[in-house]
């Protein structure tokens, strides 16, 4: 373990704690704790983070098993707008449908348009 390499007490391993509030809910990050191993981490997680809060499931993960983004990588998440692949890039559709509807109501004999 890298803690050991640093000469730190191996009793203190870092675990990240996740939980689910409802059966069909998403898994949520809660907090971290120090424990000597997984078994201990999971019993400690319950009372450290769910004394009042409800949980239907609890996960613990050794922190060193998690690959996180570096700061450069995080910066790269700040995307340029890609309107063409999102619904908000098509905000003009309603108006265009309405235009057709108006034309129809005004009696112009163009092709019929189904109601949107």
């Amino acid at each position: 373990m890298d803690e050991q390499k640093n000469g730190l007490n191996p009793f203190y391993e870092e675990f990240e704690v996740f939980s689910k509030k409802k059966e069909d809910g998403p898994l949520q990050y809660q907090f971290s704790l120090l424990a000597p191993n997984e078994e201990m981490a999971i019993v400690l997680a319950k009372e450290n983070f769910f004394r009042r809060e409800k949980a239907v499931d609890i996960w613990v993960v050794r922190r060193n098993a998690i690959r996180k983004l570096s700061q450069s990588e995080k910066e790269s998440l700040k995307k340029l707008d890609k309107h063409y692949r999102e619904t908000k890039g098509y905000a003009d559709l309603n108006q265009r449908w309405r235009n057709f509807k108006e034309k129809q109501d005004n009696g112009t004999d163009e092709k019929k348009v189904e109601k949107a």
Binding site: N6, L8, N9, Y12, F31, S32, L33, L34, N48, R51
Partner: peptide, 29 residues
């Protein structure tokens, strides 16, 4: 329950401090 919460607050805050100290080679000890 109240004193337990205070220990719990210590746990949360020390975890935050420990992560900040880690690059300096320090931990809870």
């Amino acid at each position: 329950a109240k004193v337990q919460d205070e220990m719990g607050h210590g746990q949360l805050l020390l975890r935050v401090a420990e992560d900040l100290m880690k690059p300096l080679g320090k931990n809870r000890d």
